[in-house]
């Protein structure tokens, strides 16, 4: 029994079940219905952020193209389902595979050298993608944007807002589980070793270029999955969504929440995206300041609390234990 309680996989599944209650609470009138959209959106962004956390947290590489790749996948899926009439499943696969291939090509060019080249190359790529979103009218609808609808699963189950929310939570939990497995296995150890010492990891047989590529491909893949979910949950896509600003938000999420931490990523997504939307909106000054606050938080966390806010829980617990022990004496 104790083993079951400690099983990390069950924790993820339990979290998923907990998150699935939200639409029910909204139906009962305990929550505003719009909260379902906000939370679903947060989870979608968390998926992309998890990919970036593999890249930055584990392998120490920065990508500024997260939003660009996410947008590419969103447009592709909208185009495949609406214009070409493909099934949701097929379009999901294509809209994830195509950006991932683009990502691997970019990685092949930039990852051979120092890590910082990836940041600059992805910045250039996101600029190219932004231009593509604006100019390729037939595919993206240009500035007026592109709409998509809630998906129909397996050709029979038509999802509504709540249904799509459940689907998003399910995907989030699966992605978290997969990430947990990979990062606690051979791949995670190799990426950790690489970040610690390139020379030592090479001596242990880690092919640097391959593993950097894998990390970047995973980051692109996660961003693409998030892009597809986004366009079928929010149901539209504009060029102005997929900017550098959003890519920076992803960085903020993982740095603030906690590098290398799966739960930290979710916490970070909540702080960066949901908190301004749910709470700060009501306070006029703060809603304008949320971007500034994120910037300040990034800097403060990096300098003073490098493992991220997720560690607060452990630190508070430790402090509490210490205090209660002190009283016991």
């Amino acid at each position: 029994m104790k083993k079951l309680i400690k099983n990390p996989h069950l924790h993820f599944i339990f979290l998923g079940l907990l998150l699935m209650i939200v639409p029910k609470l909204a139906e009962m009138g305990l929550f505003k219905v719009s909260y379902v959209t906000t939370l679903g959106g947060t989870f979608i962004l968390a998926i992309a952020a998890l990919g970036l956390n593999i890249l930055l947290g584990f392998s120490g590489l920065v990508s500024l193209g997260t939003a660009g790749f996410m947008g590419l996948a969103a447009y592709l899926s909208a185009y495949f389902t609406v214009d070409l009439g493909l099934s949701f499943e097929l379009s999901l696969i294509l809209a994830v595979v195509i950006p991932t291939i683009v990502g691997i090509l970019v990685g092949l060019v930039s990852l051979k050298i120092e890590g910082i080249y990836l940041a600059i190359a992805t910045l250039a790529v996101s600029e190219i993608l932004r231009k593509t979103f604006e100019e390729f009218d037939f595919f993206t609808g240009g500035f007026s944007g592109k709409t998509a609808s809630y998906p129909t699963l397996l050709g029979t189950y038509e999802l509504d807002r709540a249904g799509m929310y459940y689907f998003v939570v399910a995907v989030l939990i699966i992605v978290m589980l997969i990430t947990y497995n990979m990062m606690n296995g051979r791949l995670g150890r190799a990426l950790n070793a690489m970040r610690g010492s390139e020379a030592a990891s090479q001596a242990m047989g880690v092919n640097l270029l391959n593993h950097r590529l894998i990390a970047f491909a995973l980051a692109t893949m996660y961003a693409s999955i998030a892009g597809v979910l986004y366009v079928h949950f929010i149901k539209y896509s504009y060029p102005s969504i997929w900017t550098l600003k959003l890519s920076l938000d992803f960085l903020a999420m993982i740095v603030i929440g906690g590098l290398r931490s799966i739960y930290g990523t979710l916490l970070g997504a909540f702080i960066v995206f949901a908190v301004p939307d749910l709470f700060l909106k009501q306070i006029p000054f703060f809603s304008e300041m949320s971007y500034v606050l994120n910037g300040v938080l990034i800097i403060l966390v990096i300098i003073f609390y490098p493992n991220g806010l997720i560690n607060m829980f452990a630190d508070i617990k430790r402090l509490f234990n210490k205090l209660s022990k002190g009283e016991g004496k």
Partner: peptide, 19 residues
């Protein structure tokens, strides 16, 4: 601070200025 984290600090500065 780790060199990579320093780049991220400049990204944070960018967010502050943009805000």
């Amino acid at each position: 601070v780790h060199p990579e984290a320093k780049q991220i600090i400049t990204l944070g500065m960018m967010m502050i200025v943009l805000g």
